[in-house]
Nucleic acid binder design. Structure first.
Lengths: 186, 186
DNA sequence: CGCCGCATGTAATTAGTTACATGATTGT
DNA sequence: ACAATCATGTAACTAATTACATGCGGCG
């Protein structure tokens, strides 16, 4: 498993608390690896026990204390080793594609609607991606090495999103020809 | 969860045994939903208990008996209802993108190699997709309704694959500029 | 004889989700 | 008083992976 490695990756540059990690996952790495706060907290305990992370309690004014985690030397070595190993892919699972195998006149309109929703979600995500890209990765050749990797991941997300939008349009066009009922006031 | 629905989808047109389902998942629906035989067998038991599937033992010459599953009326209704509900997406998880966040001179060559492997895998997959497309979906407008849905799913797979190949090329080009050691015998 | 393909399963473990629990501060 | 944000956790459950188990028939 590699939630542990995703967490440690997020801690490469900034030390963070579990709460902050959960937030970071929602916008940055979380685009490629989704994790709930419950999972993160439990993983943090394991990683601290294994000696890959160090915990430090930080008092805050007007807010509860937080427990900030930092990579240890052992943690960094473990990461370096992990990068050199074989990658694992966990293919996504999407009801929508399975549903398409069940296409019929009775559900074509519904599926077109769901695809429309997905399109909308993807548009918003792409908007965020592009904002990040323009702000931090406008000139990829000028980036420090590690940042080039982050850029490549971002680029994969953007490309995939763009392809998905195009597919949504195609799919909706075809579904429109299938739809059983016509709604143009005839 | 929807492994159950993926299984029932696979049984829409053909009755199958667990073994056959596992094989079918590897080439057709499995492109969008991966499942091991263990999972499939257990799910089949649950679905039969729920009355959505019917089991029938079929004796075979020179082979062990097999248990063939068929959708019941209740199963078909459950499917029709499920299609009309909200879809769930389980985003994929890929070590490779997390690893890219760890890019350094010391691992650039390794990452480029891993991307090359992925490219090769995707090429083979696309070859299969295209073969299926040419054989069964050459003229999408002429397809029966349900098949149009399957075509759309296939199209999403093809498009995604093509985008991925292009990304691999871009990524390898950028990684080549990062790689610490030069190997051209200089 | 050993390995492969067919065919079905159980058990143990790990990963992930959902629900629940606590408690402080700030804003309405 | 009530909700929202910050902050951390436990418990129960579902899903998925890995490993193990069985047994027949055909091939080399």
């Amino acid at each position: 498993m590699a939630l542990s490695h995703a967490i440690m990756t997020a801690l490469l540059e900034d030390d963070m608390s579990g709460y902050e990690l959960a937030k970071a996952f929602d916008i940055s790495l979380g685009l490629f690896w989704r994790a709930s706060h419950q999972q993160i907290y439990q993983e943090l305990h394991k990683l601290a026990d294994r000696g890959w992370l160090q915990r430090e309690t930080v008092a805050q004014a007007g807010k509860p204390d937080k427990i900030v985690y930092a990579l240890t030397g052992a943690g960094r070595s473990a990461m370096a080793e992990w990068v050199m190993g074989n990658s694992r892919v966990q293919e996504g699972k999407d009801d929508l594609f399975v549903k398409l195998y069940n296409l019929a006149e009775s559900n074509a309109a519904h599926l077109a609607m769901e695809i429309g929703q997905r399109r909308e979600q993807m548009m918003q995500r792409l908007y965020l991606y592009e904002k990040i890209r323009r702000r931090h990765y406008a000139d990829p050749t000028a980036l420090p090495v590690r940042r080039k990797g982050v850029f490549l991941a971002l680029l994969a997300g953007i490309r995939q999103g763009e392809h998905f939008l195009a597919w949504c349009d195609e799919a909706q066009a075809i579904l429109a020809t299938v739809d059983g009922k016509e709604t143009d006031g005839g």
